[in-house]
Every structure is written in structure tokens, then in C-alpha cells.
Design a protein around this nucleic acid. Structure first.
Length: 272
DNA sequence: CACTCTACCTGTGCGC
DNA sequence: TGCGCACAGGTAGAGT
């Protein structure tokens, strides 16, 4: 499940890898499944992408942003969200498409950019203003500073789990890194945000920040048999039944706000 | 505002 | 072996 660190890895691969997507032009567009194209963007995906050149690749939260240059005077941006199971990668264009390829962009150098997604949860937009997609998001979780983080929490009274998962508060954290951050900080997911002292808010910020930076450096998480983007080793996510790496207690799994949630019952106590 | 539920999807893995 | 089903989860949108 790609979250911020995994999406950042995709950006770096496509931007800095060899070959790079930057500078490439699209020769033709193959929409295999209309299902992943955002409603209202179907025409632009075909008309604008065809002939466009990739000039820059960035990320905001879990959204990939591809700046385009086209014959059109108007500038456009290709936006892609991988959601749960989306994958984005370059291949030789003659390579057969896979079972779950939903969109293929044939490029000018013999390569193709493929977007695969078995569950069709991922989304593709072509917009002139990326704000149409990202304006509702809070600050990016990787680069937000402590003061901004503390200000975002102030005045809210919510369970920490749902707060960290809320993209409108902070953009980029999903279920895996929420559980990992709360474990790192030693907070119970159901702890109410307004009960935290400023020292505790600082502890939470440091945990989120450290976990995300470590995961980015590791090029994403490595989760046994499920998800192996990079080499970041999780402590609690999916580890119910395993010993806590800190105290040895057995990690448990329960539901917090409809979401599978993993904690060490000894290290993450619920307090007033 | 905080929360809960539902829909969207399909591969996986379980119990029977 | 095979069937049915719960489950995984990011986001939008509706309802409490």
C-alpha cells in the first residue's frame, strides 16, 4: 500500500533513474481501463497527454504530479494517486502489457510508462491547476515543521489514529505509518489529541518525522509477504502475535475507527 | 466538528 | 478440491 515514502520512491525512480521519464514525450496514449480515469478528465487524458513532454516530477502527500509541456499554450499537470495497489513504472514499449495494466503511455525513446492497478482504486487526472486535486490536503507530512504541526493539532479533539490518517490535516500518512509513528511515540491510537501536553505533541511530531525520513531513506516499507517496496522494517504493522521489539510483549491487532490497528499493549497505554 | 457507515474493487487466505 | 466469505485499505460522500 503505497504511502508517502513509497510514493517518494516512485518519484525518485522516474525522475532520477536511468532511464528517466523527464524530457520524454508521449507518442500515444492507451487507456486500457476508463475506470481509473477521474470523471471529467477522460478527454484531456487522451487529447492533452498525446504529444506532451514530461518536464518535472514531484509529489504532494500521496499524489504524484507530472508537469507537462504541450503544444497547447495552457500548462497541464498529470496527477496520479496509486491508492492501495497501483504501480507505475517504465518498460520497453514492446513488452507485453500485464493483466492489470490500466493506462499505458508510449514514449519517444522506445519505452512506455505503465500504470497497473488490480483493484482499479487508483486515480488519474489531467488538470491545468493541480490545486483542483490537492487544495483540500494539509501540509506534506515529510516537510512540515513542528510549529505548523502543533498548530494543526490545536483546537482539534480527535483520536490520534484518525487525526494522522486525515489527509486534510496532514498529507501522506496511511495506515502503516500511522501505526508505526504511534508506536514510536508511545501513544495509544485512541488517545484524544487535545489531551496531549506540548511536550507530547513534540514527541508525536518527532516520531512521525523520524519514521517518515527513515522510510524514505529505505525506499519504502518491507512487509512480510504482502508489500515489499523497500527495506524499512515495521515494528507493529501486520505483526500481531510477534514480540514488541522494545519490550517483548505480544503485539495485538484491533479496530480503531474502522481501521486495522496494531499496538504494543505495554508500550502504548491509553491515558487521560 | 467528530464520528460512522457505505461504496468502490479484486486477490488472498481462511474455514468448512 | 472447491466453495463462500471476510478481509485488506484510501477516499468520497452521506448520514448521525
Amino acid at each position: 500500500m503505497p504511502e508517502l515514502p513509497e510514493v517518494e520512491s516512485v518519484v525518485r525512480d522516474l525522475r532520477d533513474g536511468r532511464p528517466s521519464l523527464v524530457g520524454r514525450s508521449v507518442c500515444s496514449v492507451n487507456v486500457v481501463s476508463n475506470n481509473v480515469i477521474q470523471e471529467g478528465c477522460e478527454d484531456k487524458v487522451k487529447a492533452i497527454l498525446d504529444g506532451a513532454r514530461f518536464v518535472a516530477i514531484t509529489r504532494y502527500g500521496k499524489y504524484l504530479l507530472f508537469q507537462l509541456e504541450s503544444s497547447d499554450v495552457q500548462k497541464y499537470v498529470l496527477v496520479i494517486h496509486l491508492r492501495m495497489t497501483g504501480r507505475l513504472y517504465l518498460v520497453p514499449q514492446h513488452q507485453a502489457v500485464e493483466r492489470h495494466t490500466r493506462l499505458a503511455l508510449i514514449l519517444d525513446d522506445g519505452l512506455a510508462l505503465r500504470f497497473d492497478d488490480p483493484r482499479k482504486f487508483g486515480r488519474v487526472w489531467v488538470v491545468s491547476d493541480p490545486g483542483e486535486v490537492t487544495d483540500k490536503l494539509g501540509p506534506d507530512a515529510l516537510t512540515i515543521g513542528y510549529d505548523d504541526f502543533a498548530a494543526r493539532l490545536a483546537g482539534r479533539s480527535r483520536q490520534l489514529k484518525s487525526l494522522l490518517l486525515d489527509q486534510g490535516v496532514l498529507a501522506g500518512i496511511g495506515n502503516i505509518y500511522t501505526d508505526e509513528s504511534l508506536f514510536r511515540a508511545g501513544f495509544h491510537p485512541n488517545q484524544i489529541s487535545s489531551t496531549l501536553s506540548s511536550a507530547e505533541v513534540r514527541r508525536l511530531y518527532d516520531a512521525v518525522s523520524t519514521v517518515l525520513h527513515e522510510a524514505v531513506d529505505a525506499q519504502g516499507a518491507n512487509i512480510d509477504g504482502v508489500f515489499k517496496a523497500g527495506s524499512f522494517v515495521v515494528s507493529v504493522y501486520g505483526r500481531q502475535g510477534d514480540p514488541c521489539p522494545r519490550c517483548g510483549s505480544t503485539i495485538i491487532k484491533f479496530r480503531s475507527g474502522q481501521r486495522g490497528t496494531h499496538v504494543c499493549p505495554h508500550c502504548q497505554l491509553l491515558s487521560e
